[in-house]
Write a protein that binds this DNA or RNA. Structure first.
Lengths: 199, 199
DNA sequence: CCATTGTTTTGAACAACGTTCAATTACATG
DNA sequence: CATGTAATTGAACGTTGTTCAAAACAATGG
């Protein structure tokens, strides 16, 4: 048939992404399937593949929104006068965002993308944006150090907090320690600040 | 039929685990399947389920060996006189073990276990053993601090290095920074030592 | 040496998955 | 109203993990 009258191309693409997002939020990415999604939106499975390369592409589209949401939370918390304490604020923002969007976050960092599929550029760009905000804080902590040092420090802190929170999110932090992720994140921030100040 | 003459029960269990391990090493855990495994060992798929609860249980059995292997590597590198530098040695041991057993490590930390399945006790015990070794180093660095502080520090360092190396292993470290995992691990060790010394 | 017993092994079957593509259908245009 | 175009369909293919009645083998007792 030709395009059904109920949705334009753009509307359909949006419908697919939004429904996929809802589905992942509710059931987690492992329960997410092409058949279930197509049923939910009232189209046949094959239709999905005329608007997206494969399921991977749909999850990736959802991931854009997830990462944008985190960026928005960071932007909201952004301080005109960044300092050491601001890093703790961002840690809180990060931890609670991940906690409140557990399934979406898992989709972002646990979904297996196929071997050949490249890492999208916007992925790196979005993350770079987040890290830049942290870099500002490190710059403020020690204005005498070159910006490269601050960048290095912020990337390392981001990687640390991020990956420890992934560990928590997959239920494996308790294998290593019996502490809340909030505790751990804040201590990591302290440690990284302390080491940075002692340079 | 009754038990086939070619393998005793114990031999068969061992054969299953060993073949599963080989398979994961060669192809990765995502290519690992019940049918392929049964074909490889020359038994029918159903046979696997008479010796293991499910595929998860087989992967878990492989994981025992993986974690034991890491523990053995740590034990080999263990120093009678631990100090700050020894932590770097362990970082190297850890990183190269993960690098040399990429697929096995992924099976250990990326394989999705079913919701209800409990974390095995030996899992925690093995990891605790590794962390104890690190704790000794921290104790040596500052003998005046209580052992709880050293334990805290070693768990945090272990979690950091471990999770950053997971990030690398899943090909996502490059999303955050353009550095080798070795570099990152050693800087993490330095940072944690520095902060610990400054307490 | 054979029949019976008790397990172990088998493999077809089930429900689900991602994906493809010929056939169909609905809409826009002439 | 006929024709053409393009979106949609859904059956089909090859996977997957798992189950279970049936079959097959080894040990046992006579």
């Amino acid at each position: 048939m030709a395009r059904r009258a109920d949705h334009t191309r753009e509307e359909l693409v949006e419908l697919i992404i939004d429904s996929a997002q809802k589905m992942i939020v509710e059931l987690g990415v492992e329960k997410f399937s092409a058949r279930a999604l197509s049923k939910k939106i009232g189209y046949a499975p094959g239709t999905l593949y005329h608007h997206f390369e494969d399921l991977d592409a749909i999850v990736t589209a959802v991931n854009v929104k997830t990462l944008s949401g985190l960026a928005a939370s960071f932007a909201k918390a952004r301080d005109a006068e960044p300092n050491a304490n601001t890093l703790h604020v961002y840690a809180d923002v990060f931890i609670s965002y991940v906690r409140n969007h557990k399934h979406l976050w898992n989709a972002l960092f646990e979904f297996k993308r196929s071997e050949d599929s490249e890492v999208p550029d916007w992925y790196v760009a979005k993350i770079d944006g987040l890290i830049q905000i942290l870099t500002d804080c490190f710059v403020a902590i020690r204005k005498d150090l070159p910006i490269e040092e601050a960048q290095r420090a912020s990337r390392l802190l981001f990687a640390s907090v991020h990956s420890v929170s992934s560990l928590e999110n997959s239920g494996r932090l308790e294998l290593i320690m019996n502490r809340s992720i909030d505790d751990v994140a804040h201590e990591l921030v302290d440690i990284h600040i302390s080491a940075y100040q002692a340079r």
